[in-house]
Design a protein around this nucleic acid. Sequence first.
DNA 1: AAAATACGGTACCATATGTTACTGCTTAAT
DNA 2: ATTAAGCAGTAACATATGGTACCGTATTTT
Lengths: 224, 224
Amino acid sequence: MYIYEKLTRNALFRSLDAATVRQLLEAISYHRKHFRKHEVIAREGDTVTGLLFLLRGSLHAEMISASGKVLKIEDIRRDHSPAPAFLFGPDNHYPVHIVADCDSEGVFFKKQALLRLIIMNETVLKNFLDMISAQAQFLSGRIRFLVMQGIKGKIAQYLLIRADRVRRDDIQVVCSHTELSELFGVTRPSLTRALREMHLEGVLSVEGRNITIRNKSALREYLG
Amino acid sequence: MYIYEKLTRNALFRSLDAATVRQLLEAISYHRKHFRKHEVIAREGDTVTGLLFLLRGSLHAEMISASGKVLKIEDIRRDHSPAPAFLFGPDNHYPVHIVADCDSEGVFFKKQALLRLIIMNETVLKNFLDMISAQAQFLSGRIRFLVMQGIKGKIAQYLLIRADRVRRDDIQVVCSHTELSELFGVTRPSLTRALREMHLEGVLSVEGRNITIRNKSALREYLG
DNA sequence: AAAATACGGTACCATATGTTACTGCTTAAT
DNA sequence: ATTAAGCAGTAACATATGGTACCGTATTTT
């Protein structure tokens, strides 16, 4: 499959057909990048010089505090790019580390090339506005999630959203407890304890990574 | 002073002269709005239908949790607009309440009008990109501030930034403790206690709203 | 197959922060 | 002028979460 076909799946090229993307790509320069599993693609503080578009694999963004606390900010799959909102604006530095979850591959557009794309095609411009806005909206939701509730609230919100998405009350959590605890910004033992307590309270039934919601309205009470 | 002269101070019209802004304004429609002190301009969840530009006064954005916890997200003065990154993108709803700090006044551009401005003038487009990028960057910094450190870390970061800005070690904190605690996402007694402890440790000297940094390197140790 | 790594469970204790309530003081509203 | 709000300080206590350490199992990697 050609690059431009894969790129149509990215938010920047949404509602463009492969032929148009091909045309656009011919007008600018870019280069291909490969990353190995666990490779650090960008460190917090590095200058953002362009935008990466994933063709294969997946990445994640994480913050690490001075004391070593890890907070996973988001997963980045092939429809998203890392740090799109840090290319423009006053501070062009990565606010997070970008790490490859597995062997991955992408194309990198320098800022100038991207700017040309945006000016050349109004759909691309609109898509880019949507991308940056989406990023801000996501971060705003993340603040509410992380700051406005305790661990049980986070568990409740996480599970309720997933249950709603799959339209079932039994949820297969794909992440490990360690990952979940990094996503929630808490320690793993604290997360396990909270799950155990919610199990004892009869709100959830927890069996390893299979969690079933037993009392949905009680679960909602935990929301911050 | 005319509206367009005041608007040149807003981020959207940066590096445009008053005459150009006047021209731009004549091409689109907008209307004027007035707000009284403490008036709620938008509630969390309201649809964002356009963008407000402040001519006079100041606003702030805050989140309120189910349990009543208040988190102040940001101050909005005449160079900024509320929620610029929520006009485009997938979720066009205010993530926060917008409240007037004092009697205030502004002009409101509907989304379509703004879109026309952006397309008409490349500087405006670039400025808008910068605005929403700045918003995302701000929120990202806010996550680090709020989640990656304890109260003393927040105090340290807050004071060090201010001290650096005024190039002095004695700082006149303009907000009340109540406001500060909302900005930090903690309770007021906890904030007061932390300040008292840091005073006893000899790191700070706290006298009401006058705070002097006594030991800058010790203060930095608190940063998360 | 062996070794290394990641994972999940748990317990004990430490610590940070929240909760509530009361005080006196200052500033703004009537 | 009087009343009402808001503000800063503090204390006693409750609670949530963190820190650390250990174990046994599962899963990779070599």
